[in-house]
Design a binder for these strands. Structure first.
Lengths: 338, 338
DNA sequence: GCTCGCCTTGACAAGGTTGTCATGCCTTTA
DNA sequence: TAAAGGCATGACAACCTTGTCAAGGCGAGC
């Protein structure tokens, strides 16, 4: 029970009013330098920390940033949290996590949260970031929000994303550079915007390098291991099979590797395999997976930054956004055409 | 900006004092039934939600539960959050996540958190749950906490855990039931308590079924893919290699599978492989891994429950604890001895 | 030397809820 | 019938900070 030090005791010790202490705490102007120093010393001496409840009750800030997610991968969620926290800590903010049940009425889950706990801002991850009902509620409640990799209606709000098209383009170019011309592609879940963007990048690279996109070398997947497995069975079952397969995410690429393993196709000698996302699983296969790394922590930190600097509130013009660089991670699953 | 409905408006609409509204909200006794109903109707009509900052400032509860973690797997962290949230929501509590940097001075990171944001309780995951400095700070600040799968000094606090010994026993018995007698074992990180417990279960099952524990069939690992890989290379490199390998966690088991794959040993025809934890990776290999599933979400929910019901504060006697059931997940990586 | 205006500071209210204590009514007991 | 006690409710203070507004001090310009 060491706590219970209030602003009054700091004020008494430093010989000023509580208001001046408040000013120092909030880095407000109009405090003489030596007054400021005196207060800071008292704060340190008493190990004083402002009470966040009193602060948010009296002022406008709650010192809380929310992260809403529903169901993307654990690795993604944790990275988002780590990235957001890193930035929030600098300003004394805390992170509140709110998993949403996308089966139910998501908006109805969000509304009470915002009502009770007045958050200063919310970070939305896919797929919640494209749930219009949630966006409506946030706007109705006047809570600023930033979307991570939004798919729909990007101009609606501040957002942070990565250039999926260019990443897929470069991965395809990497395979072409290794001598592959017949490159199979496994699309992702058709309702995820990233699916289309990645496919677009693949097509652009193929065309630009003068290779045809063969329809029978493009399969529909659903971002799951199983869908990748089945797509690979179809792709590799035919006599004129591709020499490389680029799957729209790692889980599906791992499905491809499993099929290759069953068919006794050596990777990468007989088949190159590329994924997307750099999930933990990418390093837990043999050979390790060539893939694209999204800078998820950096993206989340950027989102927190937009929130903390109030960059979301600009009216009239296009909402602020950040575009971050990806990283091509070349491991052992891709090699020269054999 | 739809909010701003306060307790006063509810009081006015239902014709009682704000104190009575407060009583209804907090399920306090001594309110006539029809008064209670009238208030509840007003609450519903106005869509009123108590302001959490004001509540925690005035009262003793903050309606916040913290989850401290440093570095276990993302899948584990997310499951803990989901489990804890599920229970917290029932009581209107929110979850605050605080990743800790275990490289730095962890206690110094924890102290300010508790000071500013007065949490009602904290859930500690391994390995933070065994950091004595953190426990000291929590106790000094008077914040109740529950540890998940603590390793050291279990009597120090409330905790929730799973029976690792029995789980390892049953997995070993499962292999023995398939006809295996030469069962290799890969130990986990020697500083994790679970390592010893799992080994203990393995030894007990072997002895009880009349099989010798051959020292050259037991290897030291570190819970990592690589350490499992290397241990498997040693185990499978010798002429009298075991017919089954039980690794203390999934990552190491995946390392074993990779070696088997390289040596062209069919799993499970020529080698059975068992893991522990049921991480996502267990389903992303071919064949899928037989393993033990920890009921992580249920454990976290139990921890939250201990916190919310105040079961942690009992003085004098042993702190409350819960022991949850594991689940043996038999997939395709284990089979009859060939 | 005086006025004006900026810088610095403080007194006080406000923010929405819970805790304490007092009050009045109704029921039980002697 | 009177006293005692329990139940239902309300008035008001308290929680700790920030926002508003007023006031004092001091230097610059005339």
């Amino acid at each position: 029970m060491s706590s219970k030090v209030t602003i009054h005791e700091v004020a008494r010790l430093s010989g000023v009013s509580i208001k001046t202490v408040s000013r120092v705490l909030n880095r407000e102007p109009n405090v003489k330098n030596d007054t400021r120093t005196r207060v800071q010393e008292a704060v340190a001496a008493l190990n004083y920390r402002p009470n966040i409840s009193a602060r948010s009750l009296a002022g406008s800030k709650a010192y809380l940033i929310g992260v809403f997610f529903d169901n993307p991968s654990p690795a993604y969620v944790t990275d988002v949290q780590l990235g957001a926290i890193a930035r929030c800590r600098e300003e004394g903010y805390h992170l509140i996590v709110e998993p949403l049940d996308s089966e139910g009425d998501v908006a109805a889950q969000v509304e009470p949260m915002l009502h009770t706990l007045r958050m200063d801002g919310v970070i939305l991850t896919p797929p919640v970031c494209d749930n219009v009902a949630v966006l409506d509620v946030l706007e109705a409640e006047g809570v600023p929000y930033v979307r991570l990799s939004p798919d729909q209606d990007q101009d609606r709000s501040a957002h942070v994303r990565m250039d999926d098209v260019r990443a897929a383009y470069e991965m395809t170019a990497h395979l072409i550079g290794l001598g592959h011309t017949d490159i199979g592609f496994i699309k992702g879940h058709p309702e995820h915007g990233a699916s289309h963007l990645r496919y677009e990048g693949y097509v652009a690279a193929m065309k630009e390098h003068g290779h045809a996109v063969r329809e029978d070398h493009v399969e529909q997947g659903w971002f799951s291991f199983r869908s990748g497995f089945e797509a690979a069975e179809r792709l590799l079952g035919r006599p004129d099979r591709p020499t490389a397969i680029f799957a729209s995410n790692d889980d599906m690429a791992l499905g491809v590797m499993a099929v290759a393993n069953r068919l006794r196709l050596e990777v990468p000698q007989s088949l190159s395999v590329a994924g997307f996302d750099d999930t933990p699983g990418a390093k837990v296969v043999w050979p390790q997976l060539t893939t694209v790394r999204q800078p998820i922590q950096a993206m989340a930190a950027a989102a927190a930054d937009l929130l903390l600097t109030g960059a979301t509130r600009a009216e009239g013009e296009a909402p602020p956004s950040r575009l971050l660089d990806f990283e091509l991670v070349v491991r052992e699953s891709t090699g020269p055409v054999g």
